[in-house]
């Protein structure tokens, strides 16, 4: 790749990220959908744990888990499904028409969404902490930041990979994802430590990067975290890094493949097909 091509791809990435970072915050509906609504299940589970006189750390597990639901939802509807919508609006045609690598558009989209959801996650955790008075005992802020960054990266790499499936299978992929929504919520341990599922089920659940990311963050934030941890934090970080690379390479391969199929069959640009 020449220097000018590299600069062009960098500019393209930033331009696409701009839509997510600046544009999306203009629509105040995100306060409702990404802050207020995720608070309801968080509150429900917190009340359940409270009524059972469970240790306060369990409330912390729920708050952290509930906050990461926003990341997952963003990946599904804001990343994986996005190219499907872009096709409907005609933007995808323009992405394919321009000299920019389509992967740069996808990365820009992921960077923008990752940044936005990072901020939202922090705000949700703060609100949850205020509402239920949960104490966080962070053992290492550096490690926590690394874990969060790696989790967001791997989850959005998965989203990038899934966007190709959405392009290829359209509404079928949509339906499949809706069917798997609840099982994913369950397997990722959004509201309980994933260790409770046992090693075999937990290992399968680890293919969803949010499972390990959430587990590592819980271990780093709460006194009872390490006791309930599925794997050691560094192991989880390395697995998340490996998943990021695998999902990124798969996303690149699939997107190139889908683009070729799209050009051959006219699927990506002819909406009536």
């Amino acid at each position: 790749m020449s220097e000018s091509e590299f600069m062009m791809n960098l500019r393209g990435m930033w331009a696409r990220a701009y839509v997510r970072i600046v544009g999306v915050n203009r629509e105040l509906s995100w306060l409702l959908f990404e802050l207020l609504f995720p608070l309801f299940p968080i509150c429900s589970f917190c009340f359940v744990y409270k009524s059972m006189n469970a240790p306060d750390d369990y409330l912390g597990f729920v708050i952290l888990g509930g906050a990461t639901v926003a990341i997952w939802m963003n990946v599904i509807w804001g990343m994986a499904a996005q190219f499907f919508w872009e096709r409907e609006s005609g933007n995808l045609t323009l992405y394919m028409l321009c000299p920019l690598n389509t992967m740069s558009v996808l990365i820009g989209m992921a960077v923008g969404a990752g940044f936005s959801t990072f901020l939202r996650l922090i705000i949700t955790v703060m609100i949850g902490k205020m509402l239920f008075g949960v104490q966080f005992f962070v053992t290492s802020y550096t490690l926590l930041f690394i874990t969060l960054a790696v989790t967001i990266t791997s989850v959005f790499c998965l989203g990038m990979m899934m966007s190709s499936f959405f392009l290829l299978y359209g509404r079928d992929a949509w339906n499949l994802l809706t069917i798997f929504m609840e099982p994913v919520f369950f397997l990722s341990g959004f509201y309980f430590p994933v260790k409770s599922l046992g090693f075999a089920v937990g290992s399968i659940a680890s293919l969803i990067p949010i499972t390990l990311g959430l587990d590592a963050m819980r271990q780093l934030c709460f006194k009872l975290g390490p006791v309930n941890g599925f794997l050691p934090v560094w192991t989880e970080i390395w697995i998340l890094l490996a998943l990021s690379v695998i999902y990124f390479l798969l996303a690149r391969y699939l997107l190139a493949k889908i683009e070729y199929i799209g050009r051959r069959e006219g699927r990506l640009t002819l909406r009536w097909q």
Binding site: G12, V19, G90, N91, L94, Y95, P99
Partner: peptide, 29 residues
């Protein structure tokens, strides 16, 4: 090359006209 189609619905509603046009220029570096 570039292309314009009639009845096109491209761009992002949450961005201004100027921002949308800027975004598309960035895709050409």
């Amino acid at each position: 090359i570039n292309m314009v189609s009639g009845g096109e619905n491209c761009g992002y509603g949450i961005l201004t006209v100027e921002e949308n046009l800027w975004m598309f220029t960035q895709f050409y570096g």
